[in-house]
Design a protein around this nucleic acid. Structure first.
Length: 716
DNA sequence: CGTGCCAGAGTTTTT
DNA sequence: CTCTGGCACG
């Protein structure tokens, strides 16, 4: 069944990826379709990577076809045709940190009160507009005239202008502009319609209006569109995902066939039944019920702990109890609703020497030092990137403060030139304070130097050069704080990331910046590292674990207090619960804390609505039948006799480091061949020693280059 | 211009 | 609690 529109309703764990990959392999191998004519789009790099891997396995060799994320596909198309829309083809992609600083700058310029209109709120409104293909003017037409909307309109318009001026697109623009491109230029659209005879879409339930339009336009010629999704797993409605896309597929694509995959190959019977008993309470869903040939398995364990510390202690203790030689730590996952819940678990695990890994929270690429270096590299590529320049103009400190910067931006605006042109001007350099002037000269010379040479240098050389020439590394070295140490470590780690990319083949600066622009934290989640995984249920979508813990089953936390009195929001939370539960293969634990401290103040909690919906026959463990009056609320008695241990590893290294002054440690003398232990990467073997830089092959973390005097290394 | 202190806010976030 | 950003002071 390869021709015509096809909707595959694939329940959790029903072998969705296998179905898609086999379909692709079948098209290529049996139907003789050239891989070039197939497009497969996913939401995450990880999903795309997995799919490619499995297709290549099936076909036995590398395949030259488009298996990529929506954003990557759009980026690729726009790189070739962005000029149609008036962009340069070398446009840059702004990530959420960049866009936020654009908004902040606008708010300041327009003297808009940041308390009444906070940047995040405006950003999400702008994003919502773009998801509905609403331009600033379109926004003004649709929404009534009032003060609030006037401000949103002004900011949105200015935001659009700024990005245009900087030849930049945000994530939403990648999709929106591709659709606009298709609408504006029929020949471009025809080119891609002709090319993609077969289109496949993963996680279709999470597509938004623009994504829908993108695939619908592409599929309009050959009509061979196959979408795979599960309406029960739509958990991104708050971000614009439009569940009606999947519910209306048959109407939107006449003649569509529908296949339901209802056999689950992942979980035990009881886990499935429990998940089903919860999701059943949703009204807006396509009826289906998963079944399995697997064993019934054991009941769901529920534990109501006295407080969140006991909850974490219980989870830690259960992991220790269940884990035998046959289990790896990475078989266990803790899936919570909010990132802030990770803290207690980190402390509990760390105190008991349970290795763990937190996925999510602050993105690696969002760390200040990394973003600074990326800004430098972006400037080298494109010196007129004003946003990048403002970010690093005084980083490290060069005596260029707000007054100088205001003067410079004013001058740039008046002369209609880029900020870089302004700071390169000798007249300008001499027109400011001596200290600021030499700072400006240094930055502009440095950027110019690498810009002129960028085609002859490797990315890693440019990176090293910038690190030194800008004085960035020097500033960190002289700081002598533990915080600076960690930043330097991160910068070294970033270099090994660059090396990794360079090993894959020819890498230009533009390639590199483009590739890291669309990367998230979960992509770095290494399933081979033997550590318990801590992440949000959102991040866990698409993953599976033998043993899953879902803590915080409390009204107000899960479902969140913002969702409790809104049916559709509550239904989305319920789907999230379903997603979480169906990650479990063997066993599932649900826990709650009777008393929970949040934001510094604690309160008593009520067991989650979802717990009450869950079929009680499938639950066991104390707390299930305990009436509220019998609970021993608030007695902060330690669950397993553990006495609030000081965490072995400080859970927030950066925050702690900031307070501590660097303790000069004795330099570790190392030679090639030494066995060493690193706080983060574990044990490894020293390969080379060049001055202060040691290259270590870690047993599990791979090759890393480290600064011997600062890295947390010990010789074994 | 740079630092340090205080006030305020604090779901989720594939890209 | 813990992060962020604004403002006042040196």
């Amino acid at each position: 069944m390869t021709e015509g529109p096809l909707l595959i309703l694939a329940g959790a764990g029903s072998g969705k990826t296998a179905t898609m990959t086999h379909r692709i392999a079948h098209l290529i191998k049996d139907k003789g379709v050239p891989p070039y004519n197939i497009l497969a789009v996913t939401f995450t790099n990880k999903a795309a990577g997995e799919m490619r891997e499995r297709v290549e396995e099936l076909l036995g060799g590398s395949v030259n076809m488009w298996i990529m994320t929506f954003h990557a596909a759009c980026l690729r198309i726009l790189r070739m045709h962005a000029d149609v829309l008036g962009y340069g083809r070398d446009f840059v992609v702004y990530d959420p940190v960049d866009t936020k600083s654009v908004i902040k700058k606008i708010l300041k310029e327009q003297k808009i009160d940041e308390k009444t209109f906070n940047a995040n709120g405006l950003l999400s409104q702008i994003s919502a507009c773009k998801e509905q293909e609403l331009s600033p003017d379109g926004f003004r037409e649709v929404y009534e005239d009032n003060y609030h909307n006037d401000v949103v309109y002004e900011v949105y318009r200015e935001y659009d202008r700024t990005l245009r001026k900087n030849n930049a697109m945000d994530f939403d623009d990648l999709l929106l502009n591709t659709v606009r491109l298709f609408e504006k230029d029929e020949t471009v659209l025809a080119k891609y319609q002709d090319r993609f005879h077969y289109i496949m879409v993963d996680e279709y339930q999470d597509t938004n209006k623009t994504q829908y339009k993108f695939v619908a336009m592409l599929a309009d010629r050959h009509k061979n569109i196959c979408v795979v999704g599960d309406d029960d797993q739509c958990i991104y409605q708050w971000r614009g995902a439009d569940i009606t896309n999947i519910l209306n597929f048959e109407r939107d694509f006449p003649g569509a066939q529908v296949i339901k995959l209802e056999q689950n190959y992942r979980s035990t019977g009881k886990i499935l039944a429990a998940a089903h008993s919860v999701i059943e309470n949703n009204h807006q869903r396509k009826a289906k019920k998963l079944w399995t040939e697997a064993e019934e398995g054991s009941n769901i364990t529920y534990r109501r702990a006295d407080n969140e510390k006991d909850e974490a202690a219980y989870v830690a203790q259960e992991i220790i109890r269940v884990k035998g030689p046959a289990q790896k730590y990475s078989d266990f996952a803790v899936l919570y609703r909010t990132n802030s819940q990770s803290r207690t678990f980190e402390e509990a695990f760390s105190a008991r020497d349970i290795p763990y890994k937190v996925v999510g929270g602050v993105r690696y690429y969002d760390r200040k030092e990394i973003k600074d270096m990326i800004a430098y590299m972006r400037l080298v590529l494109n010196p007129s990137d004003d946003l990048a320049l403002t970010r690093i103009i005084n980083e490290p400190k060069r005596g260029i403060g707000t007054t100088t910067v205001t003067k410079l931006t004013g001058f740039a605006a008046a002369t209609e030139s880029s900020l870089f042109e302004v700071i390169s001007d000798e007249g300008v350099q001499n027109g400011v304070s001596a200290k600021a002037g030499s700072g400006l000269r240094q930055v502009s010379d440095c950027i110019r130097k690498y810009h002129d040479e960028m085609d002859n240098l490797k990315v890693s050389n440019i990176y090293d050069g910038l690190l030194n020439d800008t004085g960035y590394l020097k500033a960190l070295e002289t700081a002598e704080t533990a915080e600076a140490e960690i930043r330097m470590e991160n910068l070294l780690e970033f270099k090994s990331v660059i090396f990794d990319y360079e090993e894959e083949g020819e890498l230009t600066l533009a390639d590199f910046l483009e590739r890291i622009a669309l990367i998230s934290d979960i992509d770095n989640h290494d399933p081979d590292a033997d550590a318990v995984v801590l992440m949000t249920m959102h991040s866990a979508k698409g993953l599976e674990f033998p043993y899953v813990f879902m803590p915080g089953m409390e009204d107000g936390l899960f479902p969140g207090w913002r969702s409790i009195d809104d049916v559709s929001k509550l239904e989305e939370e319920r789907r999230l619960c379903y997603v979480g539960m169906t990650r479990a293969m063997e066993q599932l634990w649900l826990t709650s804390a009777a008393y929970r401290v949040m934001y510094g103040s604690g309160s008593f909690t009520r067991e989650s609505t979802f717990l009450r919906e869950l079929d009680p026959k499938l639950l066991e463990g104390d707390g299930v039948f305990r009436s509220r009056s019998e609970s021993r609320f608030g007695e902060a008695k330690s669950f397993d006799g553990y006495q609030d241990p000081a965490p072995a590893r400080p859970f927030d290294r950066l925050a702690r480091a900031r307070r501590e002054v660097k303790k000069k440690k004795d330099p570790v003398v190392l030679a090639a061949g030494d066995r060493v232990k690193h706080d983060k990467f574990g044990e490894g073997l020293v390969i080379t020693v060049k001055g202060n830089v040691v290259e270590v092959a870690f047993d599990s973390a791979g090759m890393k280059k480290l600064a011997a005097d600062v890295a947390p290394l010990t010789k074994l």
